[in-house]
Nucleic acid binder design. Structure first.
Length: 695
DNA sequence: TTTTGAAGTCTCTCC
DNA sequence: GACTTCAAAA
């Protein structure tokens, strides 16, 4: 408490030095924002429409709390990405100085990780656990599934992905397996008992192998809070204020954590927009927002409706789009930014014309002075930008693709990480299994036998060396033992140790890659990149944690090793990853039924609604120019087309189209119909081939 | 028991 | 068009 006033005075001096009539930090906020930033005491829900200065308000609230004497380290700021937390804290720093640096911030999962490392040992969870990502969890689920033999008995038993999905849903939504099966997988209701047995085995294996999955991070946090009065009280007492961003995308479990953390009438601030709820596949529910006043007694609700981001024509369009949704906290966004052109609705003949339009327009706007980094191309799913990426590369337009965790999900990257993980946690069965299967001469049976032996030897670090492999696996076994031995003996204090670890793994692994692929180069390049990233971390454990919890958002982040890049680079992004960002110019491509909304969502009203909100998120990212494009013909090149009649997205109905400028791209660059008349000088193709191969 | 090749499946969003 | 699963060969 003692240093808070000092912070305040420090800021005053800074401000005084800068200019006379220095603005109070609340200046520049409108009435609602100011109310939200300064409200005290009771739980607070800020309903903030797109572009209404949500981040700004939250930043000012943090600043206000600090200025009114709250110690920064006693403020917890939960955001959706690490990037969002960093951005907010650096903005807060500009308002109240460096004190804000000690505000605790991060994602729910990263915060859970911090707490578990610290308090886990007091709750029966060793502090050196390994975090599994979703793919690892699926692999372990597969091991459990195979071990129990349920898959053989039941021909149509859920696959590992489904088992993992159901488990995750069960944990995050707090709904029973029975209910989930009835709602989403009626075909599997009869297997409920077997699914529970697989889950049981999965849970046992995680405990034995010191593994923790994403869902456990949250679940353990919640359990510490409400199953252990003493521990719960200690954790809850660490913070005086908790602020949560993107509240519409939190789930039932996260809500329970917040109740445990703040109590029913605690100092909790949440910000969200029900119209932008797009993570129901992760168990998120707008119920958290709708029920907030009921769950937190005496809660105040402040609504922000003035949009500062977009021009009036863009806002008219997005307002029309979202008005079709069954929104619960109704709000009418308005703006003073009159003028500007209507959003374009661009009909292209096919994908390549759509691509050319986007690339052309980007170059034109760039010519006119819009930096590339102020433009973004958004789409429903990662693969939809493939054609555009090729074209951009051809035209030498630099871009940075966000979204999708492709890099870390790539098999070769996971393989290399598995080596680091078994060094960190010798009991990591998932990683052992993965590594063993890579080795020539070792298949499923041998891998299992080796793991079984190691388990019997209590996972001693030399246990693998004492396993006696069948003759055909001898060379591989020897090589692996030697490699692990060498890595264990490496001085752990080496600078760039993690990077060196990877280099050692590669002395063996690169060969395997070369054997497996005809073109190993791109994969080898990925591993080079992994080494560069790893060099930025002081230890294996921190590197592995960071990789699991804070995956780099785009390729640019990777290349820069986490540092900020000043390069002027265009952004390509999934609509999901674009959440919370804004650009001068935004292109939304593939506005076609079957693509946006995705075909698989069609037929389920709730899912279609979510797709609509997702398109709303995409379109509301635009400040000055918005282009929505759709190819008229998709030529069935993609499966989505099977379910569609190549129609414009259903979300752009008449009312919405009226707010847009319709543009049909001319056929001037269309290829002429093929000339089918026979050539004057026929050629004998077969003869040419015979000649070439002496056949 | 492992490897290989062929048939078959399903395509997303992310911590 | 990539990845998994299944069946047969080594």
């Amino acid at each position: 408490m003692a240093d808070a006033p000092r912070v305040y005075r420090q800021r005053e001096r800074q401000v005084d030095a800068r200019a006379e009539g220095a603005p109070d930090h609340l200046d520049g906020l409108n009435d609602e924002q100011r109310l939200a930033a300064t409200a005290s005491g009771a739980p607070l829900l800020i309903v903030a429409g797109a572009g209404t200065g949500k981040t700004r308000t939250l930043v000012h609230r943090v600043a206000h709390l600090i200025e009114t004497g709250v110690r920064p380290e006693r403020i917890l700021l939960l955001t959706y990405t690490r990037r969002a937390a960093q951005e907010m804290l650096s903005r807060a720093e500009r308002l109240v100085g460096s004190a804000s640096r000690s505000v605790q911030g991060g994602t729910f999962h990263a915060t859970a990780n911090r707490l578990l490392r610290r308090f886990g040992p007091a709750a029966g969870l060793p502090g050196d656990f390994t975090i599994m990502d979703q793919g690892d969890a699926e692999d372990l689920m597969q091991i459990a599934r195979a071990t129990l033999g349920v898959a053989q008995r039941n021909k149509r038993f859920p696959k590992k992905e489904t088992l993992q999905y159901l488990y995750s849903r069960h944990v995050n939504t707090e709904r029973s397996l029975d209910a989930l099966l009835h709602d989403e997988f009626p075909a599997f209701v009869d297997w409920q008992k077997d699914i529970e047995r697989v889950w049981g085995d999965y849970t046992r294996r995680k405990a034995e192998r010191n593994l923790v999955d994403y869902d456990d991070l949250l679940l353990f946090w919640a359990l510490m809070l409400d199953q252990s009065p003493e521990l719960g009280a200690r954790i809850a007492s660490m913070h005086d204020h908790v602020l949560v961003d993107e509240y519409q995308d939190t789930n039932a479990l996260q809500s329970r954590i917040l109740r445990g953390l703040c109590g029913a009438n605690g100092r909790l601030t949440v910000v969200g927009d029900d119209a932008q709820s797009v993570y129901s596949f992760r168990g998120a529910t707008v119920r958290n927002m709708l029920d907030f006043p009921a769950q937190f007694t005496g809660a105040r609700v402040v609504t922000l409706e003035r949009n500062y981001r977009s021009t009036a024509p863009i806002l008219d369009c997005t307002n029309a789009l979202i008005s079709r949704a069954s929104e619960r906290y109704s709000k009418r966004l308005w703006t003073a930014r009159t003028g500007g052109e209507k959003p374009w609705l661009v009909a292209a003949r096919d994908e390549s014309q759509q691509t050319r339009f986007v690339a052309d327009r980007i170059l034109e706007l760039h010519e006119e002075g819009v930096p590339l980094r102020e433009m973004a191309v958004l789409f429903r799913a990662g693969y939809m930008s493939a054609d555009l990426e090729i074209e951009l590369a051809r035209r030498k337009i630099p871009f940075d693709k966000w979204g999708g965790l492709r890099f870390l999900e790539a098999a070769h990257v996971k393989d290399v990480l598995a080596f680091l993980r078994i060094l960190e946690n010798p009991r990591d069965e998932v990683s052992w299994y993965r590594i063993l299967l890579l080795m020539p001469g070792i298949g499923e049976t041998t891998a299992r036998a080796a793991i079984e032996t190691m388990a019997q030897l209590a996972w001693d670090s030399g246990a693998f060396g004492r396993y006696a492999p069948p003759p055909r696996a001898r060379p591989a076994h020897d090589a692996l033992v030697a490699l692990l031995e060498a890595m264990r003996n490496a001085t752990p204090t080496d600078y760039a140790q993690v990077s060196a670890d990877i280099a050692r793994v590669r002395t063996m692994y690169d060969e395997l890659l070369r054997d497996k692929y005809d073109r190993p180069e791109p994969r080898l390049a990925d591993l080079d990149q992994l080494q560069v990233i790893a060099a930025g971390y002081p230890s294996r454990l921190e590197f592995l944690n960071a990789i699991a919890l804070e995956p780099p958002q785009g390729t640019q982040d990777l290349a820069a090793g986490g540092a900020d890049q000043e390069d002027d680079v265009l952004v390509l992004s999934t609509a999901h990853s674009a959440k919370g960002r804004e650009w001068d110019v935004v292109f939304v491509i593939w506005a076609v039924d079957g693509f946006f909304p995705l075909a698989r969502a069609i037929g389920d009203d709730d899912q279609v609604d979510e797709e609509r909100r997702l398109m709303y998120v995409a379109m509301t990212r635009a400040r000055n120019h918005l282009f929505v494009t759709y190819p008229i013909h998709t030529y069935g090149t993609r499966r989505g087309a099977d379910y569609t009649m190549d129609q414009l997205s259903r979300f752009l109905d008449r009312g919405v189209r009226e707010t847009m400028e319709r543009v049909a791209l001319g056929d001037n660059d269309a290829t002429a119909p093929p000339d089918t008349s026979p050539p004057a000088q026929p050629v004998d193709l077969r003869a040419l081939l015979r000649g070439r191969f002496n056949a």
